[in-house]
């Protein structure tokens, strides 16, 4: 464990807790893409298949349970909660799941480290996580209004993966044979997807104006 990875995990943890807290307190999911949240639940499910088979550390197991629990809770709130679901904008959140899931699945079947079920599922979860934010970014472009918490949520989500890139660089130089080029490429693609959002987020923060994404 290094500081970059710990900071990355904490940033990721805060991002999902900020979102869960927002939905739970104001009983609204305005501006949140259910599609993206469902994709994240799928990411965690396919990535943590080894939750009960390989014990790495208490930290690792606890964090996996938190990520699984929070992502499924968020999906439950938006789908089932009698008040929250009313604020879900299903007419705007129309990104098709299979446009993202299928290519990632095909890619995972073609490019992976080992052709085993768990390894292909793990690789699939990496590719999926890289693009899972797309429905959310599309929704933000469409609705154009980004309330603070949603902006912070997306920002923290992008920041966590950027910190992970620093972690991979650190581990590459400190651990022999630490080779995970699939992880590195997926992580870089993911962070680049946030790049333009970061740009507008910093512009709005610097000029102290409301965050507006260009149409």
């Amino acid at each position: 464990m290094n500081i970059f990875r710990l900071a990355g995990d904490m940033t990721h943890l805060v991002s999902v807790l900020v979102l869960l807290l927002k939905i739970h307190t104001i009983k609204s999911c305005a501006g949140i893409s259910l599609k993206t949240q469902e994709l994240y639940a799928l990411v965690f499910t396919t990535r943590y298949l080894d939750l009960f088979t390989d014990y790495i550390s208490l930290y690792n197991t606890v964090m996996k349970l938190i990520f699984l629990g929070s992502s499924f809770s968020i999906v439950w709130y938006i789908r089932r909660h009698k008040i929250v679901r009313r604020s879900y904008d299903k007419d705007q959140d129309t990104f098709r799941h299979y446009f993202i899931v299928l290519p990632c699945l095909v890619l995972a079947l073609l490019i992976h480290h080992k052709f085993t079920f768990k390894e292909v599922m793990w690789t699939f979860s990496l590719y999926l996580e890289a693009v899972a934010i797309l429905p959310q970014l599309v929704l933000l472009q469409r609705t154009r209004n980004i309330d603070n918490l949603t902006g912070q949520y997306v920002f923290l989500l992008g920041a966590y993966r950027a910190l992970y890139i620093l972690n991979w660089i650190y581990r590459h130089y400190t651990e022999p044979h630490y080779v995970h080029w699939i992880t590195w490429i997926a992580g870089i693609v993911q962070t680049l997807l946030y790049a333009d959002f970061f740009y507008y987020y910093f512009q709005s923060w610097k000029n102290n104006v409301k965050l507006q994404l260009p149409a």
Binding site: I56, Y178, T183
Partner: peptide
């Protein structure tokens, strides 16, 4: 791949 290919990251 060599056995260092472990998934210890979240």
């Amino acid at each position: 791949l060599d056995e260092s290919h472990y998934h210890d990251e979240l």
